[in-house]
Design a binder for these strands. Structure first.
Lengths: 340, 340
DNA sequence: ATGAAAGCGCTAACAA
DNA sequence: TTGTTAGCGCTTTCAT
């Protein structure tokens, strides 16, 4: 005997019930479900009717068992502390989640501390939202031959698809813009250099200065962990410095906003006494007393691209080439910078 | 013939391989996997060794197909616009995600516009992160007999478990505190009244005023959509009013911070000229020039409770009673309020 | 304490 | 164009 109907549980309409009601074989029903073109219209209609009448929904488990394919993708987010992260992370989740529902992919969320091993059974592909201290998880997944895409981190030395932002380029754009405005003393408030994004922004900043023949010492660079608290300290130090900067490129909008607040507290007028440019295009930059000029990063686009790429990798049988993309940023000029 | 090994795909070790290597039947292997006590130790060891050697991981799909049970839970988040939401949503996701990995539950993310029908096939339970215009989705899930838990919304009229915050109580605490400080003219900047949280906070505000015999007209209530932009407008109107309030209870920390900024721009000193109390205990309240006094809501606790409750509902076979919880808030006194 | 065998609900090769 | 049938990998009777 098999576990017949436990009276209490919902009795799960199966493909067989549909077949019986429609008067065809289960294969035909399967074909209709999977939109095979070869089914006669008369039958298709019958089947569709039966499905509707029985409210039949195919069992994903049976489907996956039979096909050996899984349309589940895991989104791995390293458990990284810091509020700043919330805007970023949620935008990504939103973008990925939306596209997943379009592509009929199931989105499994893995908030992971960086040490535990990922459990990938039943997962058809993985998106890594950045790599911060969890590189081994990526390597592990790759070793298990699971299709992977890395977001927000251009991984050079691994054979894996990645969709990242051109952080260095964006930083250069920002600095060039400031230089074009006539600024010479341009400070940088950096983010957490453990993240590639922050490191690249710093790199871009330095590169642009060099290109423009502006020699500036390390005393113009302030390191933070991306928090507003550290931004505040950095801003105070920066403003009270011996030869204070006339402009500052801040690694995130949320910190830039804090810098603006501090500057105003210290009696500086923005942008008259200090030009500020951020990075992210966080909407709250618009709410500031002086609208924040910033470098927009295409978060949603990055999210969507990653899903598309992963989907591609999952469908084509491994043999496909991987793709490494660097998405361009865009300068958003508002009111927090002025010509010198 | 069957789809034998496609040479390119990973050849998935199956329970059969383990059985063969261990020299026992599949059944015995299954027993070991499921920790049946009846397996002779000698065999158990053999099986365990074989599992390790082959790196065998049971197919979740086969398991679920065979048992009819699913340990997948869906987290449904209505696609609600507003940046304010990011802190809240991400905290919840974080809390839920963490507990899910502890309880070995798979977390499926459903970012949903409020109109589409939820696809619940293969889902063992659902957590609704608030109900904002998507009540029918909840009713639908309930009708399908899927265990549900609602977060952040005390649903009175539906037979469903919910874990919410005592928003009204928290608001009363805030107002009582202000009253205790000697304030009489206490304004309220409300959030989006389409959310239960905002509505309850307004309700609590009014209730506390009445209890304290402080009659205050509607001109002391400012309605917003939770955005900083609208908070700014509200704050300006409030400060420029005929008989301006000496204290204000703001429905969210992020808005309270904006109010603080505006007040300072308008030359007000905090808390000397205006006492401000927020709601949420958003960490950025600590970064403000004047640390924000606020009402802490136990987001993580709410998240964790919801998972536990859902897990309970999923294990016990339906017959269990549902649970409706209202989690208490906590007043966090910092520096943005002063005695009058 | 162990194993044989019958499903779970579906897909896909093959034959018709 | 359709149906028959053999699995997918596991759990669970039932018999031993």
């Amino acid at each position: 005997m098999t576990r017949t109907k436990k009276p209490s549980s919902k009795k799960a309409v199966s493909i067989e019930d549909v077949a019986r009601l429609a008067g065809v074989s289960i294969t035909t029903v399967s074909r209709v479900i999977n939109k095979f073109a070869t089914v006669k219209n008369k039958h298709r209609v019958k089947v569709l009717d039966a499905i509707k009448e029985l409210k039949f929904q195919p069992s994903v488990f049976a489907q996956r068992l039979a096909t050996g394919k899984s349309n589940v993708i895991a989104l791995v987010i390293p458990r990284y502390e810091g509020v700043f992260y919330s805007f970023y992370a949620l935008e990504l989740i939103r973008g990925i989640g939306t596209l997943c529902s379009v592509l009929k992919l199931d989105l499994l969320l893995h908030l992971t501390d960086t040490r535990t091993r990922l459990n990938l059974k039943g997962v058809g592909g993985v998106i890594f939202a950045d790599i911060i201290g969890n590189r081994h998880q990526l390597e592990d997944a790759l070793a298990q031959n699971v299709p992977c895409v890395v977001i927000n981190n251009y991984v050079e030395d691994l054979d894996v698809s990645c969709i990242a932002i051109d952080n260095s380029g964006g930083a250069q754009t920002a600095v060039n813009y400031l230089v074009g405005l006539g600024h010479k003393k341009i400070a940088h408030i950096a983010g957490d250099l453990a993240t590639q994004a922050a490191a690249k922004r710093l790199e871009g900043y330095k590169h642009a200065l060099k290109k423009n023949n502006i020699p500036l010492g390390e005393e113009y660079v302030f390191k933070t962990d991306y928090s507003r608290g550290q931004a505040r300290i950095a801003a105070e130090n920066m403003i009270k410095a011996f030869e204070p900067a006339t402009a500052v490129f801040v690694a995130s909008d949320s910190m830039a906003l804090e810098v603006m607040t501090v500057a105003r507290e210290l009696g500086k007028e923005i942008p008259k006494d200090l030009s500020i440019i951020g990075f992210d295009d966080n909407p709250s930059g618009l709410d500031a007393p002086v609208a924040l000029t910033t470098v927009r990063q295409p978060l949603i686009k990055m999210a969507e691209e990653s899903v598309k790429e992963l989907n591609r990798l999952m469908i084509k049988d491994k043999d496909t080439k991987i793709k490494k993309a660097l998405l361009p940023t865009e300068l958003v000029i508002r009111e927090s910078c002025r010509p010198l």
